[in-house]
Design a protein around this nucleic acid. Structure first.
Length: 647
RNA sequence: GCCGAUGUAGCUCAGGGGUAGAGCGUUUCCUUGGUAAGGAAGAGGUCAUGGGUUCAAUUCCCAUCAUUGGCUCCA
């Protein structure tokens, strides 16, 4: 007998060799039918595998991450079988579970293509296989045997994978007519899969290396209930409605023009107003923290970027140098503000008493991003960083870094960004050639960041290979409406550029010393930040930020005169207001302004004219909130703004 | 940059080898209306661009450009 301990601490004795499924069955048949995988002492295994020793057990359903993982992994195998049915000779790369669903990378037979039109028949085939209730059978094989099987099948990708595996650890899973190399765990049988949807199709390099062949990647998702699929698809639809590219157009915030060039955003008046408010908000914060505004040009001599290392790293893949009539004279569009700021630091001799120097600029930079990478406002070729560089003594580094974290957290809090990931971006352990500077400097910088994050009790994830080429970063990442992660705020420690630009200050010992630099941008870039803000708020911006705070809606033209009077009053109180003077019925005007997400609507008619008031309606809340005087509503608005900015 | 998809009116989209359609928006007129769509009439398109096939191309083919889903990259 062995002792099984359940998550609630209860224990029960079972015969040696009992399976997770047996244990679930002993509790309830219902439970047994929902169990997808089993956790044994922290390791996830198949429900049918025997358990031979005392263990802590967890029974995973679809609702658990471990359950979803097995569920979608099996779904990928079933999809592979369906694909093999339609495309004999197809070869398989990898087919893992992802956050929402699964994919399989496949190499289609010569001359065959697959398109979204084929999805329906593949989905039907998947469900047909699923309904067959085929057991998914695990088999341990020797490396030799595994190699034989896939040599016979002619699947070179699997062979490549097997060659990287240790003998004795190789398992195969078979359902119906399909066998795949797989670590598992998997569903007990195919019938668990009740609903499936193939989502999209994409190219993906074998093993993520662009020198390798590009395989066809098919994404899908599956569920144990049809209803769950329907709900998931609805969720996707709703996310699409929040997409900043759609809302940016609808709310007239920004646009692009082929004639200007791709990846070069044009801010429309309302978008510019919004952005300007964000900038002013940050300027005020930075003033309080002792930053000094500077302004630098959009281009600089090529030599500047040779010095900084940008040219060697990105020069060939960038916007190309600007040539002048003068022989040999070359300028570059600035890809970063730091070299200019270094030169400002260098413009006068510094004493340790001058430090830290904090130079801030909303600096527009230009980077020739790969064309396939451009995306709305989140990745563009011309954008404005809320950039600043802090030049400080090594002793001041920690405190300065902590203060920057405070700024970022304050901004995120004010704007209600709750779901963000704090990521420590370090060097690639394998390939240090991607970076400039000495090991010593890198270790110092990386430690400084790790310590600062610790001091602030930030819950961080460490990502290797994500550092900037001149230094490690602390990045603040958020997700957009379609679940993609973007870096917003970033704080970077840099010992390297001070060296390259020969930055110096005179210390109390009367010797020259090198300052440390902190690069930081709480928003990251105005473009990306606004994009994410649009998606997080679904276009319903906080009152202090929104381009139009209120609209006056006259019940009929007879009240236009009174509307203008109200407008003047509100303007005097700095409330951003306009009048909807269109010859439309009031219901129509309300609907249109609701859709424009204007926070307040002030309806004025006979009653309001007589009592010298306005009828107040709040966006998204419907109905009539009663009559107020202009002074009263101004107070309400100002209080709400105060609340938003002081939290 | 690579693989796939898409490109028709300001917007969202239908259509299809014989020189184009809807809804919304816009304009004009009627209506002067009380908290999420009042009515009528009109204007608006070299069907992304350039080639090719064809008696005939917006439709089929090729290329380019742009958008888009991924991959790679990301200062």
């Amino acid at each position: 007998m062995i002792k099984i301990t359940f998550p609630d601490g209860n224990t029960k004795e079972y015969n040696k060799g009992v399976s997770g499924l047996d244990i679930a069955t002993s509790i309830s048949p219902r439970l047994a039918s929902e169990i997808i995988a089993v956790g044994i002492n922290g390791k996830t295994i198949d429900t049918t595998l025997p358990i031979n020793e005392d263990a802590n057990i967890k029974l995973y359903k679809f609702e658990d991450v471990e359950g979803k993982d097995a569920f979608w992994h099996s779904s990928a195998h079933i999809m592979a079988e369906a694909l093999e049915f339609f495309y004999p000779g197809i070869k398989f790369g990898i087919g893992p579970t992802i956050e929402n669903g699964f994919y399989y990378d496949v190499d289609l037979p010569e001359g065959k293509t697959i398109s979204e039109n084929d999805f329906k028949k593949i989905e039907e085939k998947i469900l047909e296989i699923a309904r067959g209730k085929h057991n998914i059978v695990r088999r341990e094989v020797s490396k030799k045997e595994a190699l034989e099987i896939f040599t016979n099948k002619g699947d070179q990708y699997k062979l490549e994978l097997i060659n990287d595996l240790q003998d004795g650890t190789i398992t195969l899973y078979t359902q119906n007519n399909f066998t795949d190399l797989c670590r598992g765990p998997h569903l007990p049988n195919t019938e668990f899969v009740k609903a499936v949807k193939l989502l999209n199709i994409a190219g993906a390099y074998w093993r993520g290396n662009e020198k390798n062949k590009q395989l066809t990647r098919i994404y899908g998702i599956s569920f144990p209930k049809q209803k769950m699929l329907t709900e998931y698809l609805e969720l996707l639809e709703q996310a699409k409605l929040r997409d900043h590219r759609k809302l940016g157009k609808e709310l007239e915030l920004f646009t692009f023009s082929d004639k200007v060039g791709k990846g070069l955003p044009l801010w429309l008046p309302k978008g510019a107003m919004l952005r300007e408010r964000l900038e002013n908000f940050l300027k005020k914060v930075q003033k309080d923290y002792g930053y000094l505004p500077v302004i630098t040009p959009h281009i600089g001599q090529k030599e500047l970027y040779v010095t900084s290392g940008h040219y060697a790293k990105y020069g060939a893949d960038s916007f190309q140098p600007i040539h002048t009539p003068a022989e040999g004279e070359e300028f570059l569009l600035k890809p970063m503000n730091c070299p200019h700021h270094c030169e400002i630091f260098n413009s006068s001799p510094k004493s340790y008493k001058d430090l830290p120097v904090r130079l801030a600029e909303f600096g527009t930079v230009y980077r020739y991003e790969q064309s396939g990478e451009l995306h709305g406002l989140t990745r563009v070729r011309g954008f404005t960083q809320d950039d600043a560089h802090i030049f400080c003594t090594p002793d001041q580094l920690k405190e300065e870094f902590l203060k920057v974290i405070d700024i970022v957290l304050y901004i995120f809090k004010t704007l209600d960004f709750k779901d963000f990931i704090t990521q420590i971006s370090l060097r690639d352990k394998e390939d240090k050639s991607k970076y400039i500077g000495s090991d010593e400097n890198w270790i110092k910088a990386e430690n400084a960041i790790i310590e600062a994050a610790k001091a602030k009790n930030l819950e961080t994830v460490i990502e290797y290979g994500e550092a900037a080429f001149y230094g490690p970063k602390l990045d603040f990442m958020v997700r957009d409406a379609i679940g993609r992660k973007w870096q917003l705020g970033t704080i970077q420690v840099d010992y390297n550029l001070p060296e390259r630009f020969e930055l110096k200050y005179k210390g109390s010992d009367n010797q020259m010393h090198q300052p440390v630099m902190i690069h930081r941008a709480p928003f990251g870039s105005m473009e990306r930040f606004v994009a994410v803000l649009i998606e997080h708020t679904a276009g319903k911006f906080p009152l202090w930020l929104t381009p139009e705070q209120a609209v006056i809606i006259p019940v009929s033209e007879k009240f236009n005169e009174y509307s203008k009077k109200v407008l003047n009053l509100l303007n005097n109180y700095d409330i951003r207001t306009s009048i909807d003077e269109r010859n439309e019925k009031i219901g129509r005007k309300i609907r249109d302004n609701e859709l424009k997400r204007i926070p307040f609507m002030f309806i004025v008619g006979e009653k309001e004219l007589e009592t010298n008031t306005i009828s107040v309606r709040k966006q998204g809340e419907g109905g009539d909130l009663g009559n107020l005087t202009v002074e009263q509503i101004v107070e309400i608005i100002n209080n709400e703004i105060k609340l938003q900015l002081n939290k």
